[in-house]
């Protein structure tokens, strides 16, 4: 594979390879020299059309730990804000000799388009409401690190599935890795064809929680209220938010995940976010290892 655009493109072996590689590379974070020479002389461009400090710095750190030269190219204050098209930007990066382009873009499919315009590897760091493959990979990595496996895990993904690139990437990847995914949301926040996805669907969080090993909460933006996806934040929170009472319905071994940024008090209560069962800060740390693995596997060879 030349690019990482969708978790749907990963076979089980490939996905496992990313996780295994990440597990080895995680050691680097614990060493005094937190750097590997592997991508020395290679150039990685972070092309971010949306603000995302978390994802951008994670990719930046990953690339730097592999000794790549990193160029941050954000849409603000650049030629992009002066109306340059994605294609022209791509051709500019091409001319600069970018070996890898990490792209975050508000338009679904932007990473696919970019892959057609540049010779280097394209890593999708989130495209619109389509996919966010490295997030799903780090989520799977975190599940494996915490529970020892992914296969057979019962994972509930709760929240704005309709607009979530994290949900799409996770459903595809977790299915490939043999987990049993249940999507939980009000029907308005489910895609109309969700019954064709390789997962179960429920509108009742309380019924799902006792049969869940991993509960993954998705951010719910308050502006969805304006479009009548749900009546009020309070009602959403009451029906689908994870608070202490709901946490008690989970099996004792179950973990709570969130891709961040969280809306405390909406989809997750503060005490759940900060509880020992929450993997939220681990997910951030694991993100660097998984992105190192992706960068190495895409850029490290011929």
């Amino acid at each position: 594979m030349r690019h990482l655009l969708s978790t749907g493109d990963l076979s089980r072996d490939e996905a496992t390879l990313v996780l295994d590689t990440a597990a080895e590379l995680a050691q680097v974070s614990g060493r005094s020299v937190k750097k590997l020479p592997t991508l020395r002389g290679r150039t990685v461009v972070n092309l971010f059309y949306e603000d995302s400090t978390r994802t951008r710095t994670s990719f930046e750190l990953a690339a730097k730990r592999l000794s790549a030269d990193v160029i941050n190219f954000s849409a603000k204050g650049s030629s992009v804000s002066k109306g340059e098209s994605l294609k022209d930007t791509a051709l500019t990066l091409q001319a600069m000799g970018a070996d890898g382009v990490v792209v975050r873009h508000p338009a679904s499919g932007a990473a696919h388009r970019l892959a057609g315009w540049v010779d280097g590897a394209v890593l999708n760091a989130g495209d619109g409401t389509h996919e966010h493959p490295t997030q799903a990979l780090l989520d799977a990595y975190t599940m494996r690190a915490r529970t020892g496996r992914v296969e057979g895990l019962r994972v509930a993904v709760v929240g704005d599935v309709l607009h979530s690139r994290v949900a799409r990437s996770n459903v595809l990847l977790l299915h490939t890795l043999g987990a049993e995914v249940t999507l939980v949301a009000p029907p308005t926040l489910m895609p109309v064809s969700v019954h064709t996805w390789p997962c179960a669907v429920s509108y009742d969080l309380d019924a799902v929680l006792p049969k869940t090993d991993v509960v993954m909460l998705l951010r719910v933006q308050a502006e969805r209220m304006q479009n009548a996806f749900f009546p009020t934040a309070r009602e959403y929170s009451r029906r689908y938010g994870l608070d202490r009472d709901r946490l008690a319905r989970l099996p004792d071994h179950a973990i709570v995940m969130h891709p961040g940024p969280m809306v405390r008090g909406m989809e997750i209560s503060a005490e759940v976010a900060d509880s020992a069962r929450s993997t939220i800060s681990e997910q951030v740390a694991n993100g660097v290892s998984v992105r190192m693995a992706a960068l190495y596997l895409l850029l490290g060879g011929s």
Binding site: E24, L25, Q27, G300
Partner: peptide, 21 residues
């Protein structure tokens, strides 16, 4: 001690799976 990430011929072949350190 895995040496994959330190090889001088990484670019001559597809990325190799890592060994354990």
């Amino acid at each position: 001690l895995d040496i994959t990430m330190y090889r001088d011929d990484l670019r001559l072949a597809p990325a190799r799976a890592l060994g354990r350190t």
